[in-house]
């Protein structure tokens, strides 16, 4: 017990001092430097077009209009790509469906049917990422294959040539970082914003 009382002072002092250092000074220091050096990135990588915020380059948005490229399935609460829903205590979320869960097969099947409804010619095989839900429910990207799969539909819906749309897709396709890390990907919101600029 003596040991306990003797140790109480250093325990309290350390907790206070380290709370100050790691809980206040450290985040403030990082924020301060970030604000100066990386102001865009630190504040959500917002896409500003003509002075207007159009979304975040990092957070996907829901699309089901045939004129737009569609992103991944999203299992966020309330509605897809719901990044913050205080009412339902829900934010980012995956589907968390197990591989043999019938609900997973149903969700994939429903997506396939939606894709086919928007473009009856769209047939199997379906790009894996286009028919499955992302981990965050906010995935801003699809694979180049998933984009290519939708080129015909978007082109037809917008009355553009497939070559033109394909060119836009290519312009918005990012390769692997340093040619090795991650996967090639297409930012859906940026691509769709670019589509809206065409004409």
């Amino acid at each position: 017990m003596r040991s306990l009382t003797v140790q109480f002072r250093p325990a309290l002092v350390c907790l206070l001092v380290f709370t100050l250092i790691t809980g206040v000074l450290y985040p403030l220091l990082v924020t301060g430097i970030a604000r100066v050096v990386f102001p865009g990135q630190a504040n959500g990588s917002l896409l500003v077009v003509d002075g207007e915020i159009r979304g975040s380059a990092l957070i996907g948005q829901p699309f089901d209009d045939p004129r737009y490229f569609w992103g991944r399935l999203s299992a966020t609460g309330g509605h897809p790509y719901n990044a913050f829903n205080a009412g339902a205590l829900a934010g980012s979320s995956g589907s968390n469906l197990g591989p043999l869960n019938p609900a997973l097969a149903e969700a994939v099947q429903a997506r396939i049917e939606a894709l086919r409804a928007a473009d009856p010619q769209a047939g199997p095989p379906y790009p894996a990422d286009l028919v499955t839900a992302s981990g965050s429910g906010l995935d801003p990207h699809i694979s180049p294959a998933a984009a290519e799969f939708q080129v015909r539909r978007v082109a037809a819906a917008r009355g553009l040539s497939e070559a033109r749309v394909r060119q836009l897709v290519a312009e918005h396709t990012e390769g692997r970082d340093f040619g090795i890390l991650g996967e090639p990907r297409v930012n859906v919101l940026r691509l769709n914003l670019a589509l809206d600029e065409v004409r």
């Binding site: 991944r72 995956g94 589907s95 968390n96 469906l97 591989p99 997973l104 894996a128 990422d129 499955t132 839900a133 992302s134 981990g135 965050s136 995935d139 990207h141 699809i142 694979s143 998933a146 991650g182 996967e183 990907r185």
Partner: peptide, 8 residues
């Protein structure tokens, strides 16, 4: 199996 995984 891309279910629950991010495209990037």
């Amino acid at each position: 199996n891309m279910e629950g995984k991010e495209a990037r």
